[in-house]
Simulated assay, not measured.
Amino acid sequence: MKIALIGYGKMGRAIEKIAIQRGHEIVLKISVDNLEDFTPENLKKADVAIEFTGPHSAFDNINVLLSNHVPVVSGSTGWLEKLPQIVHKTNAENGAFLYASNFSVGVNIFFAINKKLAALMNEQSNYDVRVHEVHHTEKKDAPSGTAITLAEQILEEVKRKQSWTMDQPASNQLQITAERIDPAPGTHTITYSSAIDDIEITHTAHNREGFATGAVLAAEFLHNKKGIYSMSDVLGI
């Protein structure tokens, strides 16, 4: 499979390493230093693009890729208020798009556990719940996309919580707290607390390899497909 990497920072290089190990070819690498190479002619070389950039460039990048009929796997966070436009664009172009706030296989299993636990805790009103995340200092957005996904899953199940906040929460709000500490690749903890006890689940990443491997698995899944997908589709969970 021929892969275009849109975003060639630490994550892009980690994805490149895994992709090559799995027998794929990197035909295009776009960073801030060679934006002039982000052209329709170069995009024709790719079977699929993996897009890891930032909140201010992801939406435009994805639009360009879809306009050029390149299937897109995106892990950029901080732009999701525009996601409905990308869904519409994908359908209009008969394209393929897969978004995940986190591509790690372990994190996606953690998502499934989080949703199940939240459903169990819906009737346990004596427990409060909070989300805490820790990332490296280069992480541009806070809270992380993964933390937001976890929070939104909880809000779907725990009916006494109506919204999330990073401020001091009201009783019907779910608090997310965020720390930026090097060299942490990412830790996410969900805590249910009562006067009697605490229930806590945590996922801790040791390096970027899990994220990179998941992104390549997603690209392999998306190749030759049409439509909108998620990591749940890739992993069958």
Results as ranks from 00 to 15, higher is better:
Met1Gln: 05
Lys2Pro: 05
Leu5Asn: 04
Ile6Glu: 05
Lys10Gly: 07
Met11Tyr: 09
Lys17Gln: 15
Ala19Val: 06
Gln21Met: 09
Gln21Asn: 15
Gln21Trp: 01
Arg22Tyr: 02
Gly23Ser: 09
Gly23Val: 09
Lys29Met: 00
Ile30Gln: 08
Ser31Asp: 13
Asn34Thr: 08
Leu35Asn: 10
Glu36Thr: 10
Asp37Arg: 08
Asp37His: 04
Asp37Gln: 11
Phe38Glu: 03
Phe38His: 03
Asn42Met: 10
Asn42Glu: 11
Lys45Gly: 04
Ala46Ser: 10
Asp47Val: 03
Val48Tyr: 00
Glu51Leu: 15
Phe52Lys: 08
Thr53Asp: 03
His56Gly: 04
Ala58Glu: 06
Ala58His: 03
Phe59Pro: 02
Asp60Glu: 13
Asp60Arg: 08
Ile62Trp: 02
His69Val: 00
Val70Ser: 06
Val72Lys: 04
Val73Gly: 01
Gly75Tyr: 00
Thr77Asp: 05
Gly78Thr: 14
Gly78Val: 07
Trp79Tyr: 15
Leu80Gly: 02
Leu80Tyr: 03
Leu83Arg: 07
Pro84Gln: 06
Pro84Lys: 09
Gln85His: 12
Val87Trp: 10
His88Leu: 10
Thr90Gly: 01
Asn91Gln: 14
Asn91Ala: 03
Asn91Thr: 01
Ala92Gln: 13
Glu93His: 01
Gly95Asn: 07
Gly95His: 05
Ala96Ile: 00
Ala96Glu: 01
Ala96His: 00
Phe97Pro: 03
Asn102Ala: 08
Asn102Trp: 03
Ser104Pro: 07
Val105Leu: 13
Gly106Asn: 14
Gly106Glu: 06
Asn108Gln: 09
Ala112Ile: 06
Ala112Met: 03
Asn114Phe: 00
Asn114Val: 12
Lys116Asp: 01
Leu117Trp: 08
Ala119Gly: 07
Ala119Lys: 15
Ala119Asn: 03
Ala119Ser: 14
Glu123Pro: 01
Glu123Phe: 05
Gln124Trp: 10
Ser125Ala: 14
Tyr127Gly: 08
Asp128Met: 05
Val129Trp: 08
Val131Leu: 07
His132Pro: 03
His135Phe: 14
His135Gly: 05
His136Asn: 12
Asp141Ser: 13
Pro143His: 11
Ser144Leu: 09
Ala147Gly: 14
Ala147Asp: 10
Thr149Tyr: 09
Ile154Pro: 12
Leu155Val: 12
Val158Ala: 10
Ser163Asp: 12
Ser163Gln: 11
Ser163Ile: 09
Trp164Pro: 07
Met166Pro: 01
Met166Val: 13
Gln168Asp: 13
Gln168Met: 12
Pro169Ala: 10
Pro169Arg: 08
Ala170Leu: 15
Ser171Cys: 08
Asn172Ile: 02
Leu174Asn: 04
Leu174Met: 05
Ile176Arg: 10
Ile176Glu: 06
Thr177Pro: 06
Pro183Val: 03
Gly186Asn: 04
His188Asn: 11
Ile190Pro: 10
Ile190Lys: 06
Thr191His: 06
Ile196Phe: 08
Asp197Lys: 07
Asp197Thr: 10
Asp198Glu: 13
Ile201Lys: 07
His203Asn: 05
Thr204Gly: 04
Ala205Met: 15
His206Gly: 13
Asn207Met: 08
Asn207Asp: 15
Asn207Ser: 14
Arg208Phe: 14
Phe211Trp: 09
Ala212Phe: 05
Leu222Gln: 02
Lys225His: 00
Gly227Cys: 07
Ile228Thr: 04
Ile228Leu: 15
Tyr229Asp: 01
Ser232Gln: 15
Gly236Phe: 12
Ile237Thr: 06
Ile237Gln: 11
